[in-house]
């Protein structure tokens, strides 16, 4: 039996279970911790696809930076367990039915579609996902988007500071 089959099964089940935990937990801290577990499961899946650089960045950016930010905000806001829904009953039922319909349509459309016919990884995949190959492509073919992203991050940085800043009233004596 192939190693990829074993690892895929393991990580796929882990990813689905941790995603369900993220969505269903009442306590936001448990949700955040399940999401960290989910990101690690996805890292494993990326490794089964031989995308080593993406896997490393997934751990650094998502499990590292973004989740630390989320946990910090949960700490600052000190939100406890989510109280029982107070909204009207009919609205909640509608939402549940609509979500169930979306799930049914998406899973059915994937299952009923013709198999793609791609059964094994491309032979280039083994050398494609490493840092040197990614870096070469990023700094030649994708140099313009790369620079645009730096501008986007600067805008987000300024935006976040402006939004979260405490607006101190200027008291003139």
């Amino acid at each position: 039996m192939d190693l990829q089959v074993v690892l895929f099964t393991l990580f796929a089940i882990g990813a689905i279970v941790s995603a369900l935990f993220t969505v269903t937990r009442k306590n936001p801290v448990s949700s955040a911790m399940s999401l960290v577990a989910h990101f690690f499961m996805l890292t494993g899946l990326y490794l089964t696809l031989q995308a080593q650089f993406v896997a490393a960045v997934q751990v650094l950016v998502y499990a590292g930076a973004i989740m630390v930010l989320v946990v910090f905000v949960i700490m600052l806001l000190n939100v406890g367990r989510e109280a029982q829904q107070t909204g009207p009953r009919t609205l909640r039922t509608t939402i549940t039915v609509v979500s169930a319909a979306i799930i049914a349509v998406m899973i059915a459309s994937v299952l009923l579609s013709k198999p793609t016919g791609y059964n094994t990884l491309h032979e280039r995949a083994a050398t494609m996902g490493n840092t040197s190959s990614i870096g070469k492509t990023l700094f030649t073919e994708y140099i313009f988007p790369f620079e645009a992203v730096s501008l986007l991050l600067l805008a987000a940085l300024i935006g976040a500071v402006v939004l979260a800043k405490r607006h101190v009233k200027e008291t003139e004596s």
């Binding site: 930076a65 600052l76 976040a160 500071v161 939004l163």
Partner: peptide, 15 residues
């Protein structure tokens, strides 16, 4: 990269 920017701005809005 976009998700990281979105995280920073989104959480600032929540705050």
């Amino acid at each position: 990269a976009v998700a990281a920017a979105e995280a920073a701005v989104g959480l600032a809005i929540v705050l």
